[in-house]
Nucleic acid binder design. Sequence first.
RNA 1: AGGACUAUAGCUCAGUUGGUUAGAGCGCUACCUUGACAUGGUAGAGGUCCCCAGUUCGAAUCUGGGUAGUCCUACCA
Length: 920
Amino acid sequence: MLGKKSLWQVGTDHAGIATQMVVERKLAAEGQPDRHALGREEFTRKIWEWKEHSGGTITRQMRRLGNSVDWETERFTMDDGFYKAVQEVFIRLYQDGLIYRGKRLVNWDPKLHTAISDLEVENKDVKGKMWHLKYPLADGLTYTDEDGVEHSHITVATTRPETMLGDTGVAVNPEDPRYKHLIGKEVILPFVERRIPIVGDEHADMEKGTGCVKITPAHDFNDYEVGKRCKLPMINILTFNADIREEAQTFTTDGSVNNDLSGFIPEKYRGMERFAARKAIVADFEEAGLLVDIVENDMVVPYGDRGGVVIEPMLTDQWYVDAKTLAKPAIEAVENGDIQFVPKNYENMYFSWMRDIQDWCISRQLWWGHRIPAWYDEEGNVYVGHDEAEIRAANHLADDVELIQDEDVLDTWFSSALWTFGTLGWPNLDDPEVARRMADFHPTDVLVTGFDIIFFWVARMIMMTMHFCKDDDGTPQVPFKTVYVTGLIRDEVGQKMSKSKGNVLDPLDMIDGISLDDLLQKRTGNMMQPQLAEKIGKRTQKEFPDGITPHGTDALRFTLAAMASTGRDINWDMKRLEGYRNFCNKLWNASRYVMLSVAGEEAVEKAAAEGTQIAITDEMKAACGVSPSGQGEPVVLSLADRWIISRLQHAETEVRRHLDQYRFDMAAQALYEFIWNEYCDWYLELSKPVLWDKNASEEEKRGTLGTLVRVLEATLRLAHPIIPFITESIWQQVKDLAGKTGDTIMLAEYPAPRDELIDAQAEADIAWLQGVITAVRNIRAEKNIGPSKELDIILKDGDDEDFRRADENQTFLMKLAKLGKITWFNEGDTLPMATTQLVGQMEVLVPLADLINKDEEIARLNKEVEKLDKEITRISKKLGNEGFVAKAPAAVIEKEKDKLAGYERDQGKIKEQIEAIKAL
RNA sequence: AGGACUAUAGCUCAGUUGGUUAGAGCGCUACCUUGACAUGGUAGAGGUCCCCAGUUCGAAUCUGGGUAGUCCUACCA
């Protein structure tokens, strides 16, 4: 519509963990063999199958919503082309020294058997216990505390007693007077009988627990750091299931295998499940008289957000990306404004995460994902390359050297991070098509996303893109210039929508409607927690007793736009949706009126009955001022015509401005107001006196009919981005009448305001007209006079403008206010018993001798006087304030003075009126 | 613990750089099947702008402090 070359790149990622999990669960539910029985190849084939038939939910919704995306270039992060990009990126980063492999502590999900990222860990508040355990000092050492009590033990506090099997030290604060003399001494780890040192480390907090912390570097992130600082070895006591191992694995501080240290685990704990082991160990401490205390403890426990079980820090070999190096330019790009967040406050969120970024663990122990392009020989040497042959050649490896590819896959976000350039065909830049697309569409302009994705996607896309995509002069390219952050759609009470809560609303159901039964089935069928079904069912039944009625796509889109104020979550309100459905209906009916006016009832009804388009004839075009030759027919524009054209220019200005500023809510609001409150409420009504006037000239009728059509046509184009379907449908009918050509409104020009069409005089005149009409309607309502009864009115105290306007707009006034006669009050006339309204300085009088109670009328007017009194007092006070007069801008003072004068004049008029009535 | 966001009509939300008689939709009241539309029309009622203090001639808007709610980050002794 703006004539710009554009691409909306759509696609989906492969959601590694979630997808693998869903399919595993499905296999289990169907009684099929699990993935280990199937084997890697067969299992991934199953996932592909599943993806084929149920992977399109989101894109189906997008299609129905009419999103104007380029479907031909739809991509999936597991498609072949994408793998090329992923592989290339991995290899280059490895060569650049930005990817490395190492033994580190990771968040391990014991259920899903994979490392997961910090961001996939959900920390839950839990009421737990802390156990105080005594570790005996080695070599019979004792010490005396400040109270003179002698101790042969040191007491540590822990919330995870089972990890003591892997303790390699006890830390005390080097400043702690109670314990610092023990630094360098040793304790005997109960049951394991291992001698472990007491070390001094800042990590030990004198205030917390007992002041002594057991250190288990292989099973705790803090301890891991302490272990590194104090050169403690690491002992892994858990299997990947998080059960106690038969024999522990021992490592030195740097992660290499430590053969000097025993991996002994007391027989009774071997193979125990971690929480069972916890119980057993606590019991044994108690029995041994080493359990000092159990303290209730509020704490936070990490759960895997997918698997739902407690995460275990685990020492494993993983691949890492040096995120700190990549983050540097990515931070700068946002700092210097190359990338802007809308709304801006999300930049802080981005900075706070990026400035404290940890190296990114990219390997996952899954089967669904991009296999890591790394191979190992028998000695454990690592080779990274595109394939085995390339690696052999590059490293001069003989054919009989066995190479085994890394079993792990890459984090889904690793591939998602390549989205902006990977989807354009990178790295095949030698392909002219790819080069052209990169030149046309990279950097891209806008990324639309939810705030919860800023860390996952946005940050990583920025890092990767800036590393790999450069201008000819080597300047890094940003992936996009603007990040538009949408709010989340929540349910009507502000809860996040989720399947387990059963409060999810499918946009398709709001578009097409759904019966209560189907909705219940959808929400409660096939649930992970069937015990919730009843509750969800009840709630659904209460909220949607009749299901959901159809509202249509445009209504849904308009609602989403109208609710999209900056960065704010939206509590979904069906009533708003209904309101905007009515709006669409209003637009439809308005266009019906236009077509009836042009084509006549017969043609319109016939087309409606047959479901066809109205046949537009040359006569119809001519009636709208479009002659077959393409030359405009002569027209005369009425005041109303000039007014609505002028108002349209304002609407166009507003809508465009709001769209440019991503204020879709305000753009929607501006459209709503223009279409309903101006075009429908006033202009259509004002067109009737002209069109239905037998005495009106051809030129006048053409002027009005043409304006009806042209303003509608432009409005459709203006509204098209928000409500594409209805606008297209109507546009196909009116385009010819408006002298427009083209197959689709999608390719029609977006309306731009033209200054020369703004008509201040017409706007002022119509405002006056509206004032008079509203005044009369007001009197009607107040006096309970039906709208069909004709009224005679008297105008009093008008100036030249009032005379002119009343004279020029008699027809409009008579018709819209349903008047019989308009007369001017002349000096010396006797004032009849009447009720009044003010329009500026002019009085509108409706003589209603029989309907007016003198006292009531006076009371009503007195109320007006009081109301004005308040305002007058307020403004007088303001103007009497020396500070205000001295310091406020002249324009503001002038405005206040005008207001005051206006109120005083009105009040004077009303007081006069009261006197006049009293005198009757 | 640190941070962000939110608090405006019965409900869902606007209110751009301080100057409005504080707005919209829905709901509510009264009247109306007038030749686009009852998914409608006309006219209304309805608000200590969460509280307190400050800055200012002037605060829904700016500052500080509270209260309530939502969320994020960190924290398993």
